[in-house]
């Protein structure tokens, strides 16, 4: 199993939702974008990327349709659904609360 050991469980979903929220992307582009924006810190193996995408699709959070890329190739593009948008909002809020809490704890130690 290729679990993203360096990612907090459940965070991958949040990242994927956020990425496809900006624009519809295909799997490859999603993996590239992930690497780009996190400055290669968050490395998600392709082996865990696709199952995660399919799970989100099955759950109705993202939807997929086949479109043609700029290179005239047909590819499966993922985009956010209404349901996904709602989930993204709540997950983002959760994440902010969690990270605030953690960072304050961490700062406490430093002080």
């Amino acid at each position: 199993m290729s679990k993203p050991s360096d990612l907090v469980q459940g965070t991958l979903d949040l990242l994927l939702l956020k990425i496809v929220a900006l624009e519809p992307l295909h799997g490859w582009a999603i993996s590239q974008r992930l690497r780009q924006v996190s400055g290669c810190i968050l490395h998600v193996s392709d082996g865990s990327l696709y199952p995660a995408l399919h799970k989100l699709e099955q759950g109705g959070l993202i939807k997929a349709d086949w479109q043609v890329t700029e290179n005239k190739r047909r590819a499966k593009f993922y985009s956010l659904t209404k349901l996904g948008q709602k989930r993204l909002d709540s997950e983002t809020a959760n994440w902010e609360r969690l990270s605030n809490a953690i960072s304050s704890v961490v700062k406490l130690k430093e002080a």
């Binding site: 696709y50 190739r73 590819a75 499966k76």
Partner: peptide, 10 residues
Amino acid sequence: SEMAFHLEMQ
């Protein structure tokens, strides 16, 4: 085909 596309891009 999704997998094939990814491989091709890579």
